[in-house]
Design a protein around this nucleic acid. Structure first.
Lengths: 190, 190, 190, 190
DNA sequence: CATGAATGAGATTTCATTCAT
DNA sequence: AATGAATGAAATCTCATTCAT
């Protein structure tokens, strides 16, 4: 049961994300996915053995892609503030560029206890993230508080800023990014 | 003539919140709700004409209750910082005291276009909230940035802090509240 | 379980006939009957032990009332043609004056093998009717054909004439009755 | 790719007619139809989107088939009396050959306001029928009375004769047809 | 591979009937 | 007697999954 057609896989993926973003997981049916993907329902079973497997697989893919996007261009060669700023921007752009994928992930996590590998992946990002924060704290650039407080600030700031941009309340431009990060940084900095 | 039982309504409410918190909306069935509430499935139809109506009603109730809790004890008699602090605490406590209700709300919003009254209620809180921020900004206590940035900071901070407390990563005590709000305030203050 | 309130009985009767005339037996529910009769559903059980019993009882009453109306003023003192004419008119007026009751009867017979007493009552009318026809045939006033042919003519003529009057295609007046019966009589007469 | 099975459609049709003839519309369930048709209940939903749609579709089909049977072999090349006789026979045979279909139609009409196309079809037959009668009346072969009176005679005669044959009271033979039509003709003829 | 038909398990909904007041 | 609430059984309908082509 090795999938052959990558175009079909991609359209299944896109269809599912879009449907979940539109109306959530509650009314998500295989028939709807297949229809939106332009294939027959039974064809889904050539690519995935069950609905659960399909959603799990999409979730893993989304998580991996997200992880890759979040860490891009934020290597150790950058100064702490710049690194954090880069991650902040990555997180924001990720949310703005892939809203359906994000909604899918958030809806799905709360409805499934994560598979082991997913949990692992999540932890891996948190670990890398924490290392950055840890370094900044050690150098007295960031506040001397428990790491989770710092992480929470960043996540919260990104999430809400993204929500406002997506809702059209804030413009999707440089100034929003500058101001948004400025506030966040004031919360973090020592 | 037996009166429509308020205890039953409450247990339906509780059962639904709990089930959604446990596994989300996807596998939520009327049978499960009825079972958890200790009544027959058909009895649900005495209280609500359909599954959709039931969820809608619960959502409206949750939203109202939340609104009431958020604005409690944060009147205009307080100084801006204290008022904001009170709202911040209200928001945090609300999330920690009624996790199931919160999960239900968040899961449900994305799966339904909100009813007019809900939208109205949401706007009403935002308006009140914005007035507080507006006042603080006018007095040069808060940063001179667009209001949404300030609101976003508070919401984001509360949400993530609550998540960490609920997950057991941060303790549910005074120090968490003090530190959490401190970071938030540093982001906001002029 | 002796019914007390005749007004309630009557309103149950009326409600049921009306509902059946409006949309047939298929969607007829006790709740609908009770609502239309202005009482509670459970109150129906004070008057009838079950839905089936209720319908059976109404059917019997309708049949009796119909029987009484059909034979009224058509005694043996009349000449055969006048007697037949009277019965023809009775049948027509019965259909026009009690359409709901008629519809109920016709819908109901085909959905129930009749109870013994109902069958008996039906037969009683047919017997009396046949006697009239038999007499006319013996006197060479009616055609010398099997009685059912004669009965069929009368019934068919009445039923279709009534339908046309009810539909507004023919006027509900003396001329319709005269012409309608004239055709029928031409079919019957020797 | 399996084609939608015409045999299945036919057996659904047959099963429904038979069940309705047996006990009417009141206790007609999809489960019973499916059982009688030898398929799963859910399979019905492949062919019709709802119970109502199923019954509507069957009704339309029955009506069309009936129309076709009634007008067969009664073209304008026949003399008026023969044409009317042919239609009379068609009507009778139709009732005797397809009793279940007829019962279904009659039960169903009263429980549904007819769809536009059905109403149209009904009118089409009436129009054709009326033309025949009109012609006969113009030639002084039929009585000089309003057309509906003539139509009513024929319909009534057929309906009641068929009922008696179906009930075994009259034999299903040539003599019944001859006598039955004779009476009817005497009613119509000038 | 791909598909539309078919299905069984289960979800929602209805409803005659019973219960408690 | 009368009622509204409650319910179990059953009806309608849905949907993930399998089958046959």
């Amino acid at each position: 049961m090795k999938p052959k057609d990558d175009k079909k896989l991609a359209s299944i993926e896109r269809a599912t994300y879009a449907l979940v973003q539109e109306s959530g997981l509650m009314p998500l049916t295989l028939a709807a996915i297949a229809r939106a993907a332009g294939i027959a329902t039974s064809t889904l079973y050539i690519y995935y053995p069950s609905k659960e497997a399909l959603l799990d697989a999409l979730y893993e893919r989304a998580k991996s892609a997200t992880f890759e996007r979040l860490t891009r261009g934020a290597g150790t060669e950058l100064a702490p503030k710049l690194r954090i700023r880069q991650i902040w921007l990555n997180m924001l752009n990720n949310r703005l560029d892939h809203p359906a994928e994000m909604v899918f992930q958030e809806q799905y996590v709360s409805s499934r206890f994560m598979s082991e590998s997913n949990r692992e992946l999540g932890k891996r990002f948190v670990r890398e993230f924490d290392e950055v924060l840890e370094a900044g704290r050690r150098d007295h650039i960031l506040k001397a508080v428990a790491l989770p407080f710092l992480g929470a600030c960043i996540l919260g700031s990104v999430r809400e800023t993204a929500r406002l941009v997506a809702a059209g309340i804030l413009p999707d431009d440089e100034s929003t990014r500058t101001t948004g990060f400025q506030l966040c940084w004031d919360a973090l900095k020592a």
